[in-house]
Design a protein around this nucleic acid. Structure first.
Lengths: 96, 96
DNA sequence: TTGATAGGCAAGTCGCGACTTGCCTATTGT
DNA sequence: ACAATAGGCAAGTCGCGACTTGCCTATCAA
């Protein structure tokens, strides 16, 4: 759970999550290309690879190998668990 | 919104939010004392003050001065807005 | 089998963020 | 008025994280 917040701290990693929400099951090179073209970010392949490793060890991204490809899928379950931490039970909108 | 994630990245700041959920409107010295006694954290007053400044500029904490006291209140609104960013609209549980 | 593609490992650079230290301002109580 | 309390400002130290560079492994197509 600590890793979830650390993973979300970096803006590039958040962009990666944005990409995976829009289209699940992308490879490292696909994500690389999208970050460069769509968001104008100039980073190396290694940088993206390391970001994906952080996201995966945080449980936010799940990978499946298939031949020489490694597909990345988003998992939002850790997000929801992390965020309900500070949501008070007595908010007036919670039970209308 | 970028500041929200950066603010949540530090474990000490998350502890401060925990404290404010439990009891709203604490002063700097109160928060300091609680972090030391209840959580065993050994940090200076300045450290906590800087953490509170980060939380405030992120909109997660709202302050009100009263004489020589400065009370700190939690605001969870930025949290909820930040989290809905990656929640897919087509989750099977969202519309049973 | 060879070259191209997809990815991994390891060491190194560098800047930002967390924390400290020292001193200063303002409000309160006696 | 004076001391104590509550907080702020600024410069400095230091470690961790983001990113690069160079090289290595594995799978697929020709």
């Amino acid at each position: 759970m600590d890793d979830v917040f650390k993973a979300l701290a970096d803006p590039t990693r958040r962009r990666i999550l944005d990409e995976l929400v829009e289209r699940d099951g992308q490879t490292l090179f696909e994500i690389c290309a999208r970050l460069v073209t769509k968001h104008g970010l100039g980073l190396s392949r290694q940088a993206v690879s390391q970001h994906l490793a952080v996201l995966e060890s945080a449980g936010l991204v799940v990978t499946r190998r298939q031949g020489r490809y490694k597909f990345h899928d988003l998992d939002t379950a850790p997000l929801e668990r992390a965020m309900t931490r500070w949501l008070r039970p007595d908010t007036p909108e919670s039970s209308p």
